[in-house]
Simulated assay, not measured.
Amino acid sequence: MSTPTFWRCEPSWSWTSPPLTDHLLWCVVDGRGAVELDGRRQELRPGVCAVFQPGDAPRATHDPHRRLLVFGMHFATATTAAPDPRWGEVLDRELLGVLARTSDASYRRGDALGRRQAELCLEQLVTLVWDAVHQPGRSAVDTAVDEIARQLRQDPSRDWTVTEMAGRAALSRAQFSRRFVAQFGMSPAQYVIQARIDRAHQLLTESGMTVTETAAALGYTDVPYFSRQYKHRTGRTPSQDRQAQPGFQPSTESAGREAGPE
């Protein structure tokens, strides 16, 4: 890979590339313009990224009053890295910026670890472009619903309500529920339950917490109800999973507390 580079295009800049001999990652960070390749044209704005392959000869121009700021690098690979079409719009511009800056800074450290980190950032950036090409048209609402689902997984013990979730996405309860089911294949309430059971399994098998302690930590006041939900989702009782962890040593007290719910 070549040195990762940011460049602010000069006011009089234009680009007519000879046929490329390697791959080129090309990401717009700021400004406005247009790029053309094989009769296709793409308006350039922040978040539009391309991966060109050997033989491509792109052309580009920009608005001199809104000069392009581009991040990119050349790289070689034995596999096909360029999507078709070559470009897409990466909606998560924060992640795009972090990866670009990290790649640039890491490579310029000049050591083996920095170069490897820059290579990993390149792989992730190319993946983002592929996702943008093959999953276009995701709206701000889709992104908001994804973020809410992420928060549910991060904090499943919280007393989540559909009304609160819908408000965060600026949707009605019915609209939010429909969008959520379309994206995740289950209702928000069922998603919360699954997130709690997933976290319960982790606590039972890794933390040493008892079934009663785990249920309480995840907001269950009824331990038998928690145990039924757990078995329904996993096919095992909470005690079975807890006792399966290496080095499990049941105490008399914990055995007595956990015998009832199952």
Rank of each mutant, 00 (worst) to 15 (best):
Y225E: 15
L120D: 10
C27V: 11
S139H: 04
L203G: 06
A195R: 04
L20A: 08
W87M: 15
S103M: 08
D146Q: 03
M186L: 11
F180N: 02
E258S: 05
Q183N: 01
Q249C: 09
D159C: 08
A217D: 11
P64A: 00
Q240M: 07
M165E: 03
L218P: 15
R242E: 06
R199D: 05
T127L: 10
C9V: 14
A57M: 08
R93P: 00
R108L: 08
S103A: 15
Q154N: 08
R199I: 09
A217I: 11
G33K: 05
L96Q: 08
A182D: 10
P156Q: 12
S227R: 06
R196L: 11
S14T: 06
G219W: 13
L122P: 04
V223R: 03
Y225D: 15
S139I: 12
M165S: 02
Q42C: 14
A140I: 02
P19L: 04
G31M: 01
A81W: 07
T163Y: 02
A76I: 03
G260E: 08
T214I: 12
P46F: 06
G235C: 07
E119D: 15
M73I: 05
P18R: 10
P19G: 00
Q240P: 05
V98I: 10
M1V: 05
L122A: 14
Q175W: 04
G256Y: 10
D142H: 08
G97Q: 06
V162S: 06
A189H: 10
R196K: 09
F52V: 10
G235D: 14
V162T: 02
P156M: 01
Q240K: 08
L99A: 07
T61G: 02
R242M: 07
L99N: 03
S14P: 12
F71L: 10
L113F: 13
L95M: 12
E253N: 12
P238A: 07
W160G: 12
G72K: 07
V129C: 00
G33M: 08
D142I: 04
G167E: 02
G256R: 01
V162P: 07
S187T: 08
P64M: 12
V133A: 00
P64D: 04
T77A: 03
L95I: 13
D159Q: 15
P136H: 05
A169S: 00
T163S: 13
M165G: 03
P261H: 10
P261T: 11
A215F: 03
S17P: 09
D155G: 14
C27T: 04
W15H: 11
R158Q: 10
L152P: 04
P188M: 06
Q245M: 11
G247A: 03
Q175C: 09
L204S: 05
A140G: 07
V223I: 01
Q229M: 09
E147R: 08
V223G: 13
Y230G: 06
H134E: 12
E119N: 01
L25F: 01
Q190N: 00
